[in-house]
Design a protein around this nucleic acid. Structure first.
Lengths: 216, 216
DNA sequence: CCCGTTCGCATAACGATGTCATGAATCCGG
DNA sequence: CCGGATTCATGACATCGTTATGCGAACGGG
């Protein structure tokens, strides 16, 4: 009833080849034939495993969320929750820059040919917010953030960092006010906007920068 | 030296048809043949006027920036510059929601098939910041914002509102913390982060909401 | 142990796509 | 009124996503 023979690495080989093509040659190189050739298989394997090109893109999006989750999970909890929150933002941005094309597909609307995210995909994206929510709760418990609605605070963090990353990837943030400078200012501004004291926020953000260097 | 016969409305007819197809049938319907048919012409007209599909998309992006500029220009200067700034944010978001597909192309990275923005296009996008910069200067002059670097302040506004609009268009902001609620909270938070007093910021943001209803 | 069944995937085809070569039709400067 | 220049319609590529067809390999019952 279930004779399957060569499953193990064709699936991952296809999505890996697709991710590599996307990263190295841009969205234009994402063709079914080229992906199949790169993975040493045929286009039909792509259809038996993913049901079409959009299914493969969806698999890539899920892979992108897995990588984002890994980056965020690498941020531990210390006794300075505001620094933890800033580090979450840095990890988010680092992941987006390291997987920029993937990130564009994950959040870049449905521009890519004939593909639109499912509600399940979006929910996977929203799950990444849980790290920030938990951290916001810790910030409130430590008396750093105003205690009202940590989920709203976490959403503000997400929205702001996402907006910066998107404009950065689009090439809109240039020299006098480059992405780095805007990002640092934004982190401090977010913490202050969430209720933290200006000096404490500045210190915590600076401390998070130190910790980022030591990560991974 | 310049024998042109039927220029007047073929160009605009093509870009209008493209914009209509994009808005009504999604990015998938943006085919050279279909645009040409819709505009009652041939695909070659598209090449003589725009040099290819990417040129037409670029023209659409410019049209998108023109519409954004119109929305922002409709925001006048009153004696409450913070309310003006909030209204700029509202106008930005209103334009993005009214021209969502166009906005996705303008800022959605290079996802759309074989198209990437030129530096000129990006500069056109950055010009829209000037409204916010001028308004930030007025906010500082009125003693509402801290006077240091209004351009950085304006960038923060842009980044945050852009991030919210992007996630909203992507369908990521849903019910308990929907886009409307996040947006209102974000406007207040931005003004406070820029140096305004909490109560004054709340009042100005609320006043800007009133003014939006009366616009256009 | 062996064979029928069942699935995986390679081949090849189809419609549609972006792009360009060709050529007819048209306008402008002289 | 004419000749060079320019617009655009036609048709031909190469390539795209997708699918029908068919072969070969892996399981399960005897």
């Amino acid at each position: 009833m279930s004779p399957r023979r060569s499953d193990p690495n064709i699936r991952t080989g296809l999505v890996d080849a697709a991710a590599r093509l996307l990263a190295e040659h841009g969205p234009r190189a994402l063709s079914a034939r080229r992906v199949a050739t790169e993975a040493s298989s045929s286009t039909m394997a792509l259809y038996t495993h993913f049901g079409g090109m959009s299914g493969l893109v969806r698999a890539m999006v899920r892979e992108g969320f897995v990588r984002l989750e890994q980056h965020l999970s690498a941020v531990g909890a210390t006794d300075d929750p505001v620094a933890d929150m800033a580090l979450l933002g840095r990890a988010y941005r680092r992941n987006a820059l390291a997987n920029s094309h993937l990130y564009s597909v994950m959040f870049g609307g449905s521009s890519l040919a004939g593909f639109s995210l499912s509600e399940e995909d979006r929910q996977a994206g929203r799950y990444t917010l849980l790290h920030a929510v938990e951290c916001a709760i810790r910030c409130s418990a430590a008396g750093r953030f105003s205690a009202i609605h940590p989920e709203l605070t976490a959403s503000q963090m997400w929205i702001a960092v996402h907006g910066l990353v998107t404009l950065e990837l689009g090439g809109y943030l240039i020299d006098p006010l480059g992405a780095d400078r805007c990002f640092e200012a934004q982190l401090v501004g977010l913490m202050i906007g969430a209720g933290d004291e200006p000096e404490a926020a500045t210190r915590s953000v600076a401390a998070s920068e130190q910790r980022l260097e030591h990560m991974r």
